[in-house]
């Protein structure tokens, strides 16, 4: 079994990212879309943390350890905030349209 490298993590992040995007692209339920967003952010977080773990300088010192994790924390916090706001919006949307189908929110179509 070959050693696990940064690229493995990055690949996983990519998979998560693409899954999130596909989730956004295929779900008609607004909350499903929100889940897609969470997946995308998660994919990004995996990358951050992986970079923090793996990135070294020429002397072998860890150069991104704290920054990566701090960014990941920020992303988590922002994701939470985003989720709160998004859910509030979804609820409002539901109140107004009696549905959570994003296809009905097409007032802005050209």
């Amino acid at each position: 079994m070959s050693p696990i490298t940064l690229n493995h993590y990055l690949a996983l992040g990519a998979v998560l990212f693409v899954c999130g995007v596909l989730c956004m692209a295929t779900k008609r339920n607004a909350i499903g879309v929100l889940m897609g967003v969470e997946l995308v952010l998660n994919g990004a977080n995996v990358n951050f943390v992986a970079f923090a773990y793996y990135l070294r300088d020429a002397q072998g010192n860890s150069v991104f350890l704290v920054e990566g994790q701090v960014f990941a924390l920020f992303v988590i916090v922002l994701a939470a905030a985003e989720a709160a706001v998004a859910l509030a919006i979804v609820l409002n949307f539901y109140n107004n349209h009696l549905t959570v189908d994003v296809d009905t929110a097409e007032e802005l179509k050209g």
Binding site: Y9, A30, I31, L34, M35, E38, N42, N45, V49, A50, A52, Y53, Y54, G68, Q69, A72, L73, I76, V77, A79, A80, A83, A84, L87, V90, L91, Y94, V100
Partner: peptide, 29 residues
């Protein structure tokens, strides 16, 4: 990968908070 705090935060905030929020949303709608 050694990011214990981030992992913990992930569990607490995401799994415990955000996801619950999402489930609430699912249930409400």
């Amino acid at each position: 990968v050694g990011a214990d705090f981030v992992g913990a935060t992930q569990l607490i905030v995401y799994v415990g908070g955000t996801l619950v929020l999402v489930v609430f949303g699912v249930m409400l709608t």
